[in-house]
């Protein structure tokens, strides 16, 4: 049980250094920019974070399994296009605001189904998830271009874009949605049998097999979950923009994997937490927001993002070094 291991705040921070980093940049931007420390801005950060954050939740499961999903960016575009296109179909013209529902449902089903397809191929063929989803990254993007004929779709129903900017009580709806999903995946990973098995499958595949865990279907489910969340992110993103473009979600896999790795999930699987991932996406969200407020051009954010990713890896390596006695291979 993850939380039984927590012995002291210091040790907790050592295991989740990303939260220390968050405090650091939070304090920095609070002093560096007058607009940063404001409730309105925090809400912005949460909404901006929610898209990458939703996908990162699913990606954490897949990566703890020792797999990876590179196709999430393309799935975001497909889901967004489906959602916006379908709600405008003739047949739903007299459904009023309910016309949004078939669009959203179709998008979520498509995302989950593509996740299932990825998972099924990984399960049945034994081809590495990296290759399977690399192919899907290309193929699904092609599907989007073919489906949209390289055109953008615009949502005619204002209720759809209103949803993206609405509030639930003091918080933006999208932020609430993200936090609820985070709690749900936290519960799944830390408390349920499926969640615990996720660590077993990633930590020692053959042990999981010998213990009778059906590894194939298990991984399939996690791929479906990441597909679902990618589609959900596509829906929320298109609702924020009131439109869907075929290039939507480009490089999202990069951002998502970066946040998950920043959050401490191991690439080889077996280790990682939702709390860490939340820290990872928040760190990137705060960084982007703060730099944006300080009017640093977007170009620099890309450089800094890449540098941070590599720096975290270097730091991790240094911290785990055994000192001078180490075998030098």
């Amino acid at each position: 049980m993850a939380d039984t291991v927590i012995k002291s705040p210091v040790r907790w921070l050592a295991a989740n250094p990303i939260w220390g980093f968050i405090v650091l940049i939070f304090v920095f931007f609070s002093f560096a920019n007058p607009y940063f420390f404001a409730l309105q801005n925090f809400q912005n950060i949460l909404v901006q974070t929610s898209t990458i954050g939703l996908i990162a939740l699913g990606m954490t499961l897949v990566m703890i399994n020792g797999n990876i999903d590179l196709s999430v960016g393309a799935v975001v575009a497909l889901a967004a296009s489906l959602c916006v296109d379908i709600q405008g179909w003739e047949m739903f013209a007299d459904w009023g605001n309910w016309a949004i529902a078939p669009g959203v449902i179709a998008a979520l089903i498509a995302g989950t189904a593509l996740g299932a397809l990825n998972g099924f191929i990984v399960w049945k063929t034994g081809v590495d998830a990296f290759i399977v989803t690399l192919g899907a990254m290309l193929g699904v993007r092609g599907l989007v271009f073919v489906y949209t004929k390289e055109q953008s779709f615009f949502a005619m129903n204002f209720a759809f874009s209103d949803f993206g900017s609405s509030n639930m009580g003091p918080l933006p709806t999208l932020a609430v949605l993200f936090l609820v999903c985070t709690a749900a995946v936290y519960f799944l990973l830390a408390r349920t049998v499926h969640g615990r098995n996720t660590y077993a499958v990633g930590g020692n595949r053959s042990a999981a097999v010998n213990a009778g865990i059906r590894v194939g279907p298990h991984m399939l489910i996690n791929f479906m979950i990441v597909g679902f969340f990618a589609a959900l992110a596509g829906v929320t993103l298109s609702s924020q923009m009131g439109a869907a473009t075929p290039n939507l979600g480009t490089n999202y896999e990069l951002w998502v994997i970066t946040s998950v790795v920043l959050g401490g999930t191991k690439l080889n699987g077996g280790a990682g937490t939702i709390l860490g991932t939340l820290g990872g996406v928040l760190a990137i969200g705060i960084l982007r927001n703060g730099m944006n407020l300080m009017q640093v051009p977007a170009f620099y954010v890309l450089v800094i993002l890449g540098t941070i990713l590599i720096a975290v890896l270097l730091l991790d390596k240094q911290l785990n070094r055994k000192g001078k006695e180490e075998l030098r291979v």
Binding site: T4, Y199, G203, N204, S206, A207, A211, G270
Partner: peptide, 8 residues
């Protein structure tokens, strides 16, 4: 050994 190291 067929154990998952990150688990209890």
């Amino acid at each position: 050994l067929s154990l998952a190291e990150e688990m209890t």
